[in-house]
């Protein structure tokens, strides 16, 4: 059952990206071009998603387990720090350069777009760079701080 709902969530998410136009970088850049000819469509994507999401998370917050009886992993982090802001700035700038964010990049790759494949490959390398940086830069520092 769990495997089915995981698969279904992925399927619906991919279909939502295709239907909404999020998977088209031209449309995304049209939305981000606030000072040119602006395509407001993606504001409706966010609006529609949050409309449903608010109900789901209101239910989830009141529970300790998910509907299938397993663990419910709600994020505990609430700090607004330099990492969050610098990461979001870097991501937003990259998003604005090509018009791809992670989900649309993946679904376009699965649609067989060669440029989306290049994007996902570079994105994965970026994520691996993060892992490497996290392992060799942040964690040793945290360990030093702990022993101090």
């Amino acid at each position: 059952m769990q495997k089915i709902t995981e698969f279904l969530a992925g399927l619906l998410f991919g279909m939502g990206l295709l239907l909404s136009g999020m998977s088209d970088p031209g449309k995304v850049l049209g939305f981000l071009d606030l000072f040119g000819t602006w395509d407001p469509s993606l504001a409706l994507v966010m609006g529609g998603a949050i409309l449903v999401g608010i109900f789901a998370f209101t239910v989830a917050k009141k529970r300790t387990t998910n509907f299938l009886g397993g663990a419910l992993h709600l994020p505990k982090a609430n700090q607004i720090d330099r990492r969050l802001v610098i990461g979001a700035l870097l991501f937003g700038a990259g998003w604005g350069l090509a018009g791809f964010c992670p989900g649309p990049g993946l679904v376009s790759m699965f649609s067989g777009q060669p440029k989306a494949f290049a994007f996902v490959l570079a994105m994965v390398i970026g994520m691996l760079l993060y892992e490497a940086a996290d392992r060799f830069i942040h964690q040793p520092r945290a360990r030093q701080a702990a022993t101090r």
């Binding site: 969050l84 990461g87 979001a88 991501f91 700038a93 350069l97 791809f100 970026g126 994520m127």
Partner: peptide, 14 residues
């Protein structure tokens, strides 16, 4: 370039 920035930025900013 965009892919590298998105990969690094989204992980850094969680």
């Amino acid at each position: 370039i965009a892919g590298l920035m998105v990969g690094l930025g989204t992980r850094y900013g969680s």
